[in-house]
């Protein structure tokens, strides 16, 4: 499988990374180089092999339902590029 330039534009869009038109061709080449190399995985017979879900053999542990966090609005917003009245600010989103 290889990607074409439209696919690269679509992936860039999905990744929310602006890609300049002149970057599309070289990026297509780079991605195809990597994809051609990982293609060798197809040689491996994985019939009946379950995908690895976790390398640790442990059970998911659960916490009790108690309030132990929050109440730190200043810590939450202190690194924000723009805030207003305790909210984060973004360009207007049309629904």
């Amino acid at each position: 499988m290889s990607v074409d330039q439209d696919t690269v534009r679509r992936i860039a869009k999905l990744s929310r990374i602006a890609i300049k038109e002149e970057q599309v061709e070289p990026m297509t080449g780079e991605l195809n180089g990597i994809l051609a190399w990982v293609e060798q995985l197809r040689e491996v017979n994985t019939d009946g092999v379950p995908p690895l879900t976790s390398v640790v053999e442990a059970k998911l542990s659960m916490r009790e339902d108690v309030i132990t966090d929050g109440g730190i609005p200043k810590d939450v917003t202190r690194n924000a590029p723009e805030t207003e009245d305790g909210f984060f600010v973004v360009p207007k989103v049309m629904e």
Partner: peptide, 15 residues
């Protein structure tokens, strides 16, 4: 399936 799932299956084999 072709990429991610296959890679995670190969990972099982490596383990």
């Amino acid at each position: 399936d072709a990429y991610y799932l296959q890679a995670q299956k190969v990972r099982t084999l490596i383990k």
